[in-house]
Design a protein around this nucleic acid. Structure first.
Lengths: 229, 229
DNA sequence: CCAAAAGTGTTCCCTCTACACCCATGC
DNA sequence: GCATGGGTGTAGAGGGAACACTTTTGG
């Protein structure tokens, strides 16, 4: 680790598990590969880390290239370094999960020569994935299952104004189980980080729900105290 | 990511935060560097990932070279990938924390040309560290603070047979606060993974404490249910 | 007999859980 | 008026926190 660095041909890549919530469904953005290996397979979006960017920056860049958006919530969660995980050489991959407010409208799909299709896919209908991406995806789900209990990541998936039922929906999809409505509301409101708006849902054919928004200021004040779902 | 891999000169290294518990103190194994850069500074043990080993294997190898021991408990926890973290080139480092039963006797110190000293240092008396190792160390502590609440990692630091006071000691050192003795014992025993032995502490000049051991079989049965300290 | 640590129960409070009905709205 | 989800309270159980004294042992 001193003198000259003895380096062999390795590469570091980033893989991103980008989650979106839309219409009551939890989705992941997958790409369909256009080149070898695993041509025509579905895969997680990813790319090599550039020479002059940190791994965090690299993840943000990849997400930006994919969606056209900046400021996507993104967290590193694990590094996959098996010797044979890439058939063409040694590639160590740092994995990130990311979360996005889907509004039905967004979800741009800028194709490149490497990618012939980009699609939001319901996590309950995942196709087979290239490389070890199934494993990478599974681990992302595990991580967010754990982290959603401490961190307000659910709100990264929701629009700015949301109903409590939507919040509950996100929790249920991530945790993979039904929750009691009354208990859920008591708890989520007891954190004191949701602000009730003088505004109701619109365009629904039933009683309109009250809208809330996530109060980041209050959340950062509470930091230290941990949310514990 | 297809065709040929465009590779630049990067390297992947491993850094290990190896914890040990001895004599009521929580310690970390640090090395004193013998080469540039940061010659004579203290640093975390680490090395480059070899061409034919996974990152996990690499961490185990480094720990083995350092201590002569195999089967050290080790977990990956974060990857540090800032562009400028190594003054001699781009080095992305995958960090692991590890835990070891110190019995006063062990703690071998195989020096190399790169290392002029290896020492167990109380985490309350840490020197300045080379590179971004202070940051890597801090993050390791944060991680184990969180994980000790779910995972039985405390027992990795303890000898096979231990007293409840020793367990409490480890929890207090990692969490950085005093715990109530009666409540602690109730809770730790309520998990049902400690086996009381028909054996007492020896060689102490006061009432000898009952020895316990960690029952891995029971623990793995409980898996699914989570321990929650 | 003194020093040092082992070992042990109870009370209070708060949080978690289980559970079911009426309300508002659009069609 | 009916279908659809919105919104609400309570009782019981269990778990967490606070708290102090007696026991054992070696020296």
């Amino acid at each position: 680790m001193n003198e000259r660095l003895p380096i062999f041909n390795s590469a570091v890549s980033i893989d991103c598990v980008l989650f979106g919530f839309d219409n009551g469904e939890l989705k992941v953005l997958l790409i369909e590969r256009n080149g070898q290996p695993f041509k025509d397979w579905w895969a997680l979006p990813g790319n090599l880390v550039g020479e002059n960017e940190s791994v965090d920056q690299s993840a943000s860049r990849i997400l930006h290239e994919l969606t056209g958006l900046s400021n996507i919530y993104v967290e590193q969660y694990y590094t996959f370094g098996e010797v044979d995980r890439h058939p063409q050489g040694r590639v160590i991959s740092v994995a990130y999960y990311a979360m996005l407010r889907l509004s039905g409208d967004k979800a741009l799909k800028p194709l490149t020569s490497y990618v012939k299709n980009v699609q939001w896919i319901n996590i309950k209908e995942m196709p087979k994935l290239a490389f070890d991406h199934q494993n990478i995806f599974n681990k992302a789900l595990e991580k967010i299952k754990r982290r959603i209990k401490h961190l307000p990541i659910a709100f990264e998936l929701l629009p700015e104004k949301f109903t409590l039922t939507q919040v509950q929906n996100v929790y249920e999809l991530i945790l993979g189980k039904k929750l009691d409505k009354r208990n859920f509301r008591k708890k989520i409101l007891s954190f004191g980080v949701l602000k009730e708006l003088n505004e109701k849902q619109k365009g629904v054919s039933f009683r309109a729900a009250t809208l809330y928004k996530f109060d980041k200021r209050k959340y950062f004040k509470l930091f230290g105290k941990e949310i514990s779902f």
